[in-house]
Simulated scan of single mutants.
Amino acid sequence: MKYTQLGRTGLKVGRLVLGTMNFGPQTDEPESHTIMDAALDAGINLFDTANVYGWGENKGRTETIIGKWFAKGGERRDKVVLATKVYANMGAEGAPWPNHDKLSALNIRRAVEASLTRLQTDYIDLFQFHHVDRDTPVEEIWQAVDVLIQQGKIIYAGSSNFPGWKIAQTNETARRLGSYGLVSEQCLYNLAERRAEMEVIPAAREYGLGVIPWSPLHGGLLGGVIKKQSEGGRRTSGRSADALADSSVRKKLQAYEDLLDKHGLAPGEVALAWLLTRPGVTGPIVGPRTTDQLASALRAVELDLSDELLTELDGIFPGPGPSPEAFAW
């Protein structure tokens, strides 16, 4: 496994990030533990979760599964760079309660304590703001974070789903207050969705943030979905089905799969490998439901994409171009 720096921190992390969203809802606890063991053995050491994962009545379930894995010992916790998130309402389902969500100082403090308990650890390496909070002053957020850092309960803070201007505002406020600021941004970014290249990634690079793309396969659409449909009768649903119903989207995906079939490459592995070539990217999040899916993702790290292939991929999924030129009429 190749390693890199997590933004402007001293942390060394693998070029892939283990996403745990499926642990609980789709992958049971024993299999989740097997996947985490396999990921760590392969050199993946940044594990990403969120307090809300588990969803519905099971909010917090994913953190609990990870905590039980840490409790097995074997230096598991010491070897992992642990990242979790705060924002979603953690009150009982159907009964949202004020101050149980978003980024108020009270909820940040409450969320950290609850996550530490579920995760069976005494510190979180990377505590991430899951979404922008339009109601809470940035000064209040940093006040809460600084106290938690002083207490040793978190080490770094990061953002998720922040636009470029919010990254700038948040870090400029941190600078004014003497706080360390954000060290990472977790954003939607993949071959088929490249708008992050306009503002988010330039802002992250300017402020020294590591970029951690989520949905690297664009909800499975970049994983060879058309071929899987035709060969295995696999049906799609939800957003994927809606996207495939769009003729222009389907045309691009067909061209993508045809291109990689010509080169003898697996679409999902190429989508991950492409992200690893992008400036500013620390590592994409992979969310395997099985060990076989993890093995496929690991092959992407060793995949060397030629300049010719990168150019052909740009032809199918062109980016917006460099900023600020991308904003020109």
Rank of each mutant, 00 (worst) to 15 (best):
L119M: 08
I149R: 15
I149P: 05
Q143F: 02
A114C: 00
E140S: 01
H130A: 07
D146T: 11
Q128K: 08
H100P: 00
Q151L: 11
D133R: 01
T117K: 14
V147M: 06
P163T: 08
N99K: 11
G152P: 12
L103T: 05
S104P: 02
N107K: 04
G158P: 12
E113F: 09
V145I: 15
F129L: 15
D125Q: 10
W142P: 02
S115R: 04
G164K: 07
R134W: 13
V112R: 09
I141Y: 01
E113M: 11
V132S: 00
T136M: 03
R118G: 01
Q128L: 08
H131C: 13
D133Y: 00
Y156G: 10
L116A: 06
D101R: 11
L126H: 02
V147P: 02
S115W: 03
A111G: 08
W142T: 03
Q150G: 15
A105N: 05
D122S: 11
D146Y: 03
T136F: 02
R109V: 01
D146P: 04
D122F: 07
L106S: 07
I154L: 10
I141W: 01
L119P: 07
I124Y: 01
F162I: 09
T117E: 14
S160F: 08
W165E: 07
S115G: 04
T136K: 01
Q150D: 15
E140R: 00
I149S: 07
V112C: 14
L148T: 07
A111R: 11
E113V: 12
T136V: 15
P137F: 02
S115I: 03
V112Y: 10
D146A: 12
G152W: 11
S160K: 09
S115C: 07
Y123Q: 13
N107V: 03
Q120A: 14
G164L: 06
F127S: 05
P163K: 10
Q128C: 08
T136P: 06
S104T: 15
P163Q: 09
I124W: 01
R134A: 13
E139T: 13
F127N: 08
F129T: 05
L126A: 04
Y156N: 10
S104M: 04
D135Q: 13
